[in-house]
């Protein structure tokens, strides 16, 4: 897929977006709402059109931009599943097969076998006769997936697949989806606004913002080596340091002439009782938030009164024996610097 633009009226939803997905890959489109990720997905599906003349959608080097949604061989799972309310689970899954032109339409027995196979795949063998309103959210999600897979799509497209589910079901289904993908190996693109979800499930993540792809890389890379401040901010909590303050945090930044901004994850903030080599920053503990396995510590720097968040493991917290108003030193294990003009 390359160079896709899409505008609604005066506002441009997508700006010359290009994305190349390898076959068999599981790719997440990650971004805040309004970043254009769903629009992009719908353009890939053919449910919406890109601006005329702006680019094309290619499947295996074949331009499908002008192919109708029904002929693109995609499987689309809608955010709210869009199951056919008036049909049973079986009929829902069989719909795509039964809709084929009669020359290509498989026989009834073949359809039945195929649907049963899919039901087994999504672990809903006993639900064939139920209607969508008799299913839980997670079950509906799986039916929608089975329905999309029934037509043996080249590409599976999922719009916020876990958006409408509650937290526990979400986590379960996430792992299940990953396993499912490992079994069926269909090229899959899914949209999400949940970083954790994208990081856990996807092979590669395209982080989107304001109609552009900011970074397209593996989860580790996106997390460990974010391409720009936006990606860093979007992927988790962070502390921000402006280098013009004295006590600038990281050695290699000092060589730069422009004022860089430095981002540090809270769990990369190390808290020390002593200042071994004088390079650590003096700070005071202002608040301790106990969150189970992790403990969130709020500190304030002595030199410029800037507040800093740190995250310690439970063990480290107990070893330090921290209390409110303790005077400590902090050191940064890992940080990322970007130039000011890059910042948002």
């Amino acid at each position: 897929m390359r160079r896709i633009s899409k505008s609604y009226g005066s506002s441009q939803a997508l700006k010359d977006v290009s994305l190349k997905v390898n076959s068999g890959e599981l790719v997440a489109l990650l971004g805040p709402s309004g970043s254009g990720k769903t629009t992009l997905l719908r353009i890939i599906a053919g449910i919406e059109d890109a601006d005329p003349g702006s680019g094309e959608v290619l499947f295996d080097d074949v331009d499908v931009s002008s192919t109708n949604v029904g002929k693109r061989r995609i499987g689309f799972v809608f955010q709210h599943y869009a199951l056919f309310k008036q049909m049973s689970v079986f009929e829902n899954i069989a719909f795509g097969l039964r809709s084929k032109p009669w020359r290509e339409r498989p026989s009834k027995a073949v359809i039945r076998a195929k649907v049963e196979e899919l039901l087994a795949l999504v672990q809903l063998q006993n639900f064939a006769r139920r209607y969508p309103n008799q299913l839980s959210g997670g079950q509906r999600q799986r039916v929608a997936l089975a329905r999309a897979l029934a037509v043996e799509p080249q590409v599976l497209l999922l719009d916020e697949p876990f958006g409408a589910l509650d937290a526990t079901v979400r986590r379960e289904l996430r792992r299940w989806l990953r396993k499912l993908h490992d079994t069926i190996k269909v090229t899959t693109i899914f949209v999400t606004h949940d970083q954790e979800e994208a990081l856990e499930v996807a092979d590669r993540i395209a982080v989107m913002n304001a109609g552009k792809i900011e970074q397209f890389a593996s989860p580790e890379e996106v997390y460990e080596r974010p391409a720009n401040p936006f990606v860093f901010r979007f992927l988790g909590n962070y502390n921000l340091f402006h280098a013009r303050h004295d006590g600038a945090p990281h050695p290699h930044d000092e060589t730069e002439t422009a004022a860089p901004v430095t981002f540090v994850r809270p769990h990369d903030v190390e808290i020390l009782r002593e200042n071994p080599d004088g390079s650590a920053i003096a700070a005071k503990v202002t608040h301790i938030g106990f969150a189970g396995a992790a403990v969130n510590i709020e500190l304030v720097r002595h030199d410029d009164q800037q507040s800093i968040d740190a995250e310690l493991t439970n063990q480290a917290y107990r070893d330090l024996g921290l209390k409110q108003d303790d005077e400590v030193f902090i050191r940064l294990r890992n940080s990322h610097s970007f130039y000011e003009d890059y910042a948002i």
């Binding site: 949604v69 029904g70 689309f76 809608f78 199951l83 056919f84 809709s99 084929k100 037509v151």
Partner: peptide
């Protein structure tokens, strides 16, 4: 229109 879009994406024609 979601159910209609779903049906179309599964290859059903407009009339169906």
């Amino acid at each position: 229109s979601e159910e209609e879009l779903a049906a179309l994406s599964l290859g059903a024609g407009g009339w169906r």
